[in-house]
Each structure stands twice: as structure tokens, then as C-alpha cells.
Simulated scan of single mutants.
Amino acid sequence: MKICFVLPRYTRRPIGGYKIVYEYANRLCNSGNKVYLLFLNDNVFLEYKVPRILKSVCSNIMTQIEPRWFPLNKSISKISGLYNAKKILQDVDVCIATGAETVAVCKKAFPLASKCYLIQGFETWVLSEKELFETFNAGFKNIVVSSWLEKLVDAHSDEKSILIKNPIDLTVYRPIVPLQKRNKHSIGLLYHSGKHKGLKYSIAALGKLKELYPDLEVYMFGTSEPKEEVPGLVKFVKDASQKETVELYNKVSVFMCSAINEGYGLTAMEAMACGAAVASSDYEGIHEYGINGVNCLLSPLRDVNAMVTNVSKLFEDDDLRYLISDQGVSSLKEYDWEVAFKKFKNAICG
């Protein structure tokens, strides 16, 4: 089969949602399918006042170079922009929209293909709620990654969605350094400036924790350098590779997440798989794999003091920290890539 994933743009930096798409693309390619990645690239280089043709050339070059942060199968064809995709549009069997802004393009550009929509979040930062609801009912086969998204999408679609929870590679994301050998007062977190990630609440919590624990060590990674002062920051890794994130997860005793709106939350899941005790805000996506008091500690959204309390509990109570860590690792064994891929392949090809 010829299968085309349609993405908003190429990206030089690691993004969780793209990682899932690339993994599915690799597995479909390895299964004997011809796979295309079409990057629309309409919104790249907008900050530069250069001729459109030059932007197009540069976009095409970058599309072929990236992603350097993910081992994409070399047999996968990468295409920049609809113009360069015209030759393949007519005989693609399945096209898969991967973002809210890609749905309309798929509907118009792939008239003969079977259409699917991989929904990994409620992208209110891309479209209005009304426009998002319209994408859910565009006539595509909706594939959602979380139970809360399933309910939301089904409420605004004539067809029931297919739930396939995001897995992770547990042969990669695993405990390497025993928790007992990690600095007790160490915290890892993702630096992301999107308001839905709730970073300002994490930084506020770190300020209070630094006062309580002067030896606090903070390790962060992200796609851009921190603009704010981060209390206790020891190391920041920009555009961290998979290997670097695994090393960071294995260095900290606690992983903090203050997200407000997130479809899933892969970073906290990866950290949990690596043995870090997770202290997270009680956002919707965390419930796809996190159980409060069992494999993580949850605090109300935007509640800095509650987050500080939970992290302090993990710092002060060794038995609790070890228990949350151990149960976190064991609870993720059911999130297997082989199972998820089989479901995904049946969904798009059925």
C-alpha cells in the first residue's frame, strides 16, 4: 500500500507527537508499504523577508535533512509542500492527517484516498474549538491516543473513534541507574514555553523547593534555551537526542510536570519508565497511564504549593519514592509498541 502522513511542517527539534508519527511510519515501511511524509511547510521562514521561491527551496532542503534527531527509515519519501507532492497524490491508498490544520488539506488534495486523522491533542493553540470540532466530523477515520480525547471527539463526530494509546520503547526507556544511587534532591523536567505546558508553575515550585532544599539539582531539556531563571538548574540540554533524554531521566530521582492541557504527556511517561518518581499536575492526559498514589503523585492544576508538597513527600520518604518508582516501571509493561502498531495498521488498512 501507499501511505502518506501529512504533517504541518518539518521540525529540527524533537517533538513528542512527531516521534509517534515517525515510529508508525518506520514500522509501516518495514512491513512492506511505501510510505510518504508530506510536510506542508506553509508557515516556515515567515520571519524572513525573502522571495517565496527561496523559502520553498530552503524548506525542501531542510525537509530532506531532517529529522536528525530521529532514526527515520531511509526508504521513506519526504516531500516539502503540496506542489512537490502532485505526482503521488492520485495513487496514494491512505492519507493520514496528523494535526488540526492538515485535515482540510487531506480532504482536498487526496480525493481518492482513504482518510484517517491521528489526534494526539485538543489543539486550541492552532484552531478555535468550533473549528476543531469540525475537523473531528470531517468524515475521516479518527484515531485518538487517549480516553479523554476519545470522549471529546466522539461527542462531535458521527463516527466512533478508535483508541490506540501511545506506547514507548521499553527497551530504550528503562532504569539504568538505580534510584538509590541518584541524588535524592534532584528533579528533571521539560522546558516548553507553550502555555498549555504550565512551565511557570514548575518554575515557581522550583523556587520554593530550592529554599527547602539548598542542594536541589535541576536538570532540564527542551527545544529552546530557558528565558527565565530556573532555580537550582545544574544542566540544560537543548534539542536532546533520545540517548540524552534517557541519561537525564536516569539521573534524577523525581520528574516534575505541570501541564494544564496535554493529550498524553510522553515525557512524564518516559521518565516513569526510566525509574524517576513522577510528580505531575492532574491534567487529562496523565490518567492514560498514571494513577495517583500508585505510580505517581498528582496535584491540582496550577497549584504550586500542592506540587511542592508532593515533591517534598518524595524527597523525605525514601520508601514512598522507591514504591512510586518501582510501580511506575512495572505499570508501563502493557504499553508495548507491537500491540499499538498492530491496532494502528488494522485501523488504517481496514
Rank of each mutant, 00 (worst) to 15 (best):
F5S: 00
Y10K: 02
R12L: 12
P14Q: 05
G16S: 13
G17C: 12
I20L: 14
Y22E: 08
A25P: 09
N26M: 09
N30L: 15
K34D: 12
V35P: 03
V35Y: 01
Y36F: 15
L37H: 01
L37K: 00
F39N: 12
V44A: 11
F45N: 14
L46D: 15
L54S: 06
V57Q: 05
N60E: 12
I65F: 13
P67E: 13
S75F: 12
I79Y: 02
G81D: 10
G81Q: 10
K86M: 11
I88A: 01
C95G: 05
A100G: 12
V103M: 11
V103F: 06
C106N: 13
K107H: 09
K107A: 14
K108A: 13
K108G: 01
P111E: 04
A113H: 09
C116L: 06
Q120M: 09
V144R: 06
V145C: 13
S146K: 07
K151W: 04
D154R: 03
D158C: 13
D158K: 14
S161G: 06
L163I: 10
L163P: 05
I164R: 01
P167F: 15
I187F: 02
S193Q: 14
I203M: 05
A205D: 00
K208T: 02
L209P: 03
K210L: 13
E211W: 02
M220K: 00
S224F: 06
P226A: 07
E229Y: 13
K238T: 10
K243G: 00
V246A: 12
E247Q: 14
N250Y: 04
S253G: 10
G265H: 05
L266W: 02
M269K: 12
A277K: 11
A277H: 10
A279K: 03
D282W: 02
Y283Q: 04
H287L: 12
E288N: 15
G293L: 09
N295H: 04
N295S: 06
C296N: 07
S299Y: 15
R302H: 11
D303Y: 05
V308C: 04
V311H: 06
S312R: 10
D317K: 12
R321E: 08
Y322R: 14
L323T: 07
Q327C: 11
V329D: 09
W337L: 05
